[in-house]
């Protein structure tokens, strides 16, 4: 991560916060619906992206970690359970593989 990229990330992040707290009236209608719905599919799509990077399937420990994370959130829907499930999947795959 370069300094320029960090600056860009800081600018778009702080910028959206300032605009939200200073300038934007109540967001309504279809835009509000879209913004409220966006996080879940965006994070899920970002989770899926590295599974098939460069046309090749991710290494088995990575796939096992993701499978563990998915199984864990099916039982309890939280970030912590995903991390614990993912770690368990990763350890199982590296131990058995």
């Amino acid at each position: 991560m370069t300094w320029l990229l960090i600056g860009g990330l800081a600018a778009v992040t702080y910028g959206s916060r300032v605009v939200g707290l200073l300038a934007v009236p109540q967001v309504t209608g279809r835009l509000r619906d879209l913004l409220e719905r966006l996080p879940a599919p965006l994070f899920a799509a970002l989770a899926a992206l590295p599974l098939l990077a460069d046309g090749a399937l991710a290494p088995p420990p990575v796939l096992a970690a993701v499978a563990g994370g998915v199984l864990a959130v099916l039982l309890r829907r939280s970030l912590l359970s995903a991390l614990l499930g993912g770690l368990l999947g990763y350890l199982l795959a590296t131990t058995l593989g």
Partner: peptide, 26 residues
């Protein structure tokens, strides 16, 4: 390498508020 997809799985799960969100995430 495994941390990011697992984290995003957790973030997606935390962002799900109902069946519609779950279907969109899957």
């Amino acid at each position: 390498e495994a941390v990011f997809p697992v984290l995003f799985v957790g973030l997606a799960a935390a962002a799900i508020r109902g069946r519609g969100d779950a279907a969109r995430a899957v």
